[in-house]
Design a protein around this nucleic acid. Structure first.
Lengths: 251, 251
DNA sequence: TGTCAATGGCATGACCTTAGACCTTTAAAG
DNA sequence: CTTTAAAGGTCTAAGGTCATGCCATTGACA
């Protein structure tokens, strides 16, 4: 009666957790992963235009990859015009990528990733408010407090949409960073990568920027003040507002 | 005066985000990753003893790895005595791992991972309460509600410490699963893997089990009742209590 | 009972990745 | 000006990973 329950197989539970926990061990080739990670870091403004990437040997070690592989990745970035490389002492690989304003010439490849992107909005709602809570609960060092205030100022000071977008990402990463938790930082980095792709795909409204700036201020204020609950609530609101906006535009 | 600020390099900000966002592209070899993931799933009870793993071809595809690589991983599990493989139609790879009671014969390799494990407690505090909130916010299908109640019952019914440990993991994975968010599920899976390793390393107290069972009940109750705030608060309490216990034992 | 299909077992060749050593270039240091 | 050290550029041998196709085994089904 049941569709072929072979003795062993049907011991698996109905709503099978096994179907759900097994994830790809790794997406693609190592060098593609490197390209993606570096490109994301650059686009998010973690490495500003004009600044140098760490030396290849150091980068390779930090990314857990051989120098040959890392070099292939850098060659990819160079081919894409995101970095320029010079040799000799004092040389290195320098970021030549200038942030571009959102919604320039359509949305390349957003539609195909719709599922992943919608998921990232849910995940963000989980991760970022939690990170805020943790950040606000900790006693922050002077340099950590400085990182937060500086990042916030950079968001406020941004004059064009492109710089503002990067400063926004950096602020969120800064908040994650002051949790002191590598896993949390990784999660926020992943989320911000997706978010950036979405926000680049839509036109920016002045109203939205003003609105989110207010939220940013109250988030940072709450974290610096050590009010974990308030910090989380503020970030929740921020995530929900952004998500509503983006879900509307993804259909 | 400053320690050698070469023109380009010092454009990197003081509290350098770049130092913090770059993560290993992938830990180790693909087949090690497979072993780890499958072994964790088995130890957490996602694949119960006696049940069959999916066919190699299917598993390989789901894990994004070639069958050759996956087979090497399975060979590893077989060598470790966790699975048994039979050929022919109706054959397959069957889990032969029986859960073991915590704290049997010391704590192999917990000390070296101390940093990672402590981090996972912070990360858990971020992820699981958030997952609860999302789960409680959704309208759950009948089978999702069933999954939750069943998982809860299994925790309560567990008669020895070993099965209780697995049922506990499965309940947490079930909660993640009903968020419907793959990224969230992945995060909780990772966290539960670490948590399991820690909890296996300590003796279980009847008191603690009783305490956490109460918390489990109120968590599931809140999720089923759609009370997101209450669900999150209950899970926060649960995480904090477990974390306090474990931090004490990790030094 | 015989056939078949689902499953694990195996082999091949192309490609990727690694580790390490060594070369070349070039600015900084003396 | 010479030396030096810090970078990127190149090579090689060994091993990991992949896609694919085919073989071997064995329970299910007619």
């Amino acid at each position: 009666m049941n569709p072929s329950p072979t003795s062993a197989r049907n011991l698996r539970s109905a709503h099978d957790l096994g179907d759900v926990v097994l994830r790809p061990v790794r997406g693609h080739h190592a060098f593609e992963g490197c390209v993606e990670q570096l490109a994301t870091a650059i686009r998010l403004g973690v490495f500003a235009s004009g600044s140098a990437l760490p030396p290849e040997r150091e980068l390779a070690e930090r990314m857990g990859v051989s120098r040959a592989t890392l070099r292939e990745a850098i060659a990819g970035l160079r081919a894409a015009g995101m970095v320029r490389t010079t040799r000799g002492r004092g040389g290195g690989t320098v970021v030549s990528y200038e942030p571009t304003a959102p919604a320039r010439g359509g949305t390349p490849g957003i539609a195909e990733r719709k599922g992943e992107l919608l998921d990232s909005l849910v995940y963000r709602r989980v991760v970022e408010p939690g990170a805020c809570y943790v950040a606000a609960s900790r006693t922050l060092s002077a340099s950590e407090r400085m990182l937060l205030t500086t990042s916030l100022q950079e968001v406020d000071r941004a004059e064009d949409a492109a710089t503002h977008r990067q400063a926004d990402s950096r602020l969120h990463l800064a908040i994650a960073s002051v949790t002191g938790s590598p896993m949390t930082i990784e999660a926020v980095t992943e989320v911000q990568g997706c978010l950036h792709d979405m926000l680049q795909a839509i036109p920016v409204l002045e109203v939205n920027i003003e609105h989110s700036s207010r939220q940013h201020r109250s988030i940072v204020e709450a974290i610096l003040g050590g009010d974990a609950t308030k910090a989380r609530r503020a970030m929740e609101q921020h995530c929900d507002d952004t998500a509503a906006l983006l879900r509307g535009l993804l259909g």
